[in-house]
Simulated assay, not measured.
Amino acid sequence: MSELGLYAKYLDLGVKLGRSGEDKVRQDMERSDRQIERERKREEMEMQREEREMQKQREEMEMQREERQMQKQREEKEMEMQKQREEIALQDRREERELKRLELEAETKKLELSSRSNADVTGPKQSYGGQRPKIPPLHDPSQVDLYLERFERHATAFGWPESEWASCLSNLLKDEALSIFLVSESSRGLRLPSC
């Protein structure tokens, strides 16, 4: 066959195949277009998913920042409340001490008034300020000298008039010492007032 014949044969075959080939090419192109579209959609969906994840991470980071800030505020409030509680407790202790001091002052004034009124009522018997002996009674009669010296020092320190020493001493003596004292005082003819 000549070249021309061969060409015609191929041309005729190409025309026959061209239509079916054209359909095939068109189908391949449509398939390729659909695949490209699917890839584009998949990439778009992947980008959207990544964007959502990034947005979610940003939101989580923002929430964590807000939580830290709220925690810090809570801690600051708690510290402030603790400080206020401590200040209130300190103020309460101060007020309690002041109240006790005022009570002691009131009691002292009451005792002073009481001793003054007793001094007015009883006269010279309370001239030594109403102080009663703060020394223990004599227990050992063999120590009378030491005891009397101690009594004199005490009476002098509190400013008791010597005229009242006997009555105060009589309240501190016991048993044999008291009976000796009473005998000696009665022989003098003294009447002992009580201290």
Score class of each variant (00 low, 15 high):
179 S>F: 14
137 P>K: 02
105 E>C: 02
65 R>T: 10
70 M>C: 02
81 M>S: 08
108 T>N: 13
151 F>K: 03
36 I>N: 14
156 T>S: 11
55 Q>F: 11
36 I>V: 10
87 E>Q: 13
187 S>A: 15
44 E>L: 03
35 Q>E: 12
83 K>C: 01
3 E>S: 02
8 A>I: 13
90 L>E: 07
5 G>E: 08
176 E>V: 15
119 A>C: 06
137 P>C: 11
122 T>V: 12
56 K>W: 04
57 Q>P: 00
25 V>T: 14
43 E>P: 02
41 K>Y: 05
162 E>F: 04
131 Q>L: 08
56 K>G: 02
54 M>I: 07
162 E>T: 04
166 A>C: 09
50 E>N: 09
86 E>I: 00
104 L>G: 03
122 T>Y: 14
96 E>K: 06
141 P>R: 01
122 T>W: 14
106 A>T: 05
156 T>A: 12
25 V>Y: 13
61 M>C: 04
112 E>K: 15
30 E>C: 13
140 D>G: 02
152 E>R: 12
19 R>S: 13
69 Q>I: 03
186 S>P: 02
31 R>M: 09
3 E>R: 15
84 Q>S: 02
177 A>E: 01
97 R>F: 09
167 S>Q: 14
182 L>M: 08
38 R>A: 13
161 P>F: 00
66 E>R: 10
148 L>I: 12
40 R>W: 03
92 D>V: 10
34 R>M: 01
189 G>K: 09
92 D>K: 15
10 Y>S: 09
98 E>P: 00
121 V>N: 14
172 L>A: 04
194 S>N: 11
43 E>C: 03
69 Q>D: 03
164 E>W: 11
158 F>D: 03
22 E>I: 07
64 Q>G: 02
166 A>S: 10
103 E>K: 08
134 K>N: 15
20 S>C: 00
136 P>D: 07
133 P>K: 12
22 E>W: 10
1 M>K: 08
8 A>S: 14
157 A>Y: 12
15 V>A: 15
161 P>C: 11
127 S>G: 08
166 A>L: 05
53 E>K: 06
115 S>G: 05
116 R>Q: 09
192 L>V: 01
119 A>V: 00
27 Q>V: 08
142 S>V: 05
67 E>N: 11
188 R>Y: 04
171 N>K: 11
59 E>V: 01
89 A>C: 06
68 R>F: 08
96 E>L: 01
178 L>Q: 01
167 S>G: 06
16 K>F: 07
49 R>C: 09
170 S>F: 05
21 G>H: 05
133 P>D: 04
187 S>F: 09
100 K>Y: 03
26 R>Q: 11
117 S>I: 05
80 E>F: 02
45 M>E: 03
22 E>K: 09
168 C>F: 11
119 A>M: 10
67 E>P: 00
169 L>H: 04
130 G>C: 04
181 F>R: 06
90 L>D: 06
129 G>R: 12
82 Q>E: 08
106 A>Y: 03
66 E>A: 03
175 D>L: 15
